[in-house]
Design a protein around this nucleic acid. Structure first.
Length: 267
DNA sequence: GTTGAGCGTT
């Protein structure tokens, strides 16, 4: 019962998902459970972790049974120092069933046949309460961006933009800002989730011209060095150093980013 | 061993 997220979503009928950000990478669901459970009934706590390393991503999802409790936890736990870090608690907007989520509340798609369900209006809280909290922090880095998008588009369009933006940040976001974006951001792909598959496929097609990134500096770029063994061309070869321009393809120079400019065809 | 904007799994 202590392991949340291990057995997947237990039961989400009318639970309010809270997003906990800014948590340390060492914080686990077990650590947040007692913290959030103190302010209300926590149905489930889930902390997304990396598929490869398995490390926490730095944020967790806490599902409350009632909104009032969730709201309370947001106001109480939001900005709380956890593990030496100030966590940010806010209602989850997006998610697996973002379309079914309303202000953090997850409604079940089923039970739709009967029209007796009616719409349960919630003339209780409003975004104003939340906004006030956000204003207090005033440390939001790119929170304003969201508001802008909200005003710009609405409905499904928003989802599209959201997805795009998310993906972009996923790749752009490097381990550390200080190091900027390294040319060898391959490792950074770790956060790319299953996008790797897509990438791999593209690479497979480009197998026609492999050994482009790593032409094995150890071995000579010229496979036909039969005469170089016992001949004078050895010295000459050393001078040229580029007997096969096609191997390195210095034409584009920094083409390391796009090894296959014709990837459009393989798509 | 590291990192720090953000939105999730069996």
């Amino acid at each position: 019962m202590s392991h949340f997220g291990r057995s997947g979503p237990p039961d989400i009928r009318d639970t309010f998902s809270l997003l906990v950000l800014n948590i340390t990478f060492r914080t686990t669901a077990d650590d947040l459970f007692p913290l959030f459970d103190k302010y209300g009934k926590v149905v489930d706590v889930f902390i997304p972790r990396d598929r490869r390393t398995g490390d926490s991503r730095g944020f967790a999802f806490v599902r409350y049974k009632y909104q009032d409790e969730a709201q309370k936890a947001v106001e109480k736990l939001d900005g709380k120092l956890v593990d030496g870090r100030e966590i940010m608690v806010q209602f989850a907007k997006y998610g697996p069933n973002a379309e079914q989520i309303h202000k953090g509340r997850i409604v079940e798609p089923v039970s739709r046949s009967k029209g007796s369900r009616s719409r349960s209006p919630r003339p209780r809280y409003r975004d104003d309460s939340r906004e006030k909290n956000y204003r207090k922090r005033s440390r939001s880095r790119s929170r304003g961006r969201y508001e802008k998008e909200r005003h710009r588009s609405s409905g499904r369009d928003r989802d599209r933009d959201r997805d795009r933006d998310r993906d972009y940040r996923r790749r752009s976001r490097s381990r550390s800002r200080s190091h900027s974006v390294s040319p060898d951001y391959r490792k950074d792909r770790g956060r790319g989730r299953y996008d790797d598959e897509r990438r791999s496929r593209s690479r497979s097609f480009g197998s026609a011209s492999p050994a482009r990134r790593s032409p094995s500096p150890r071995r000579s770029p010229s496979p036909r060095k039969t005469t170089s063994r016992g001949g004078s061309p050895d010295a000459r070869n050393h001078k040229e150093r580029s007997p096969t321009p096609k191997s390195v393809s210095p034409r584009h120079g920094a083409d390391s980013r796009s090894p296959t400019p014709r990837s459009d065809t393989d798509v």
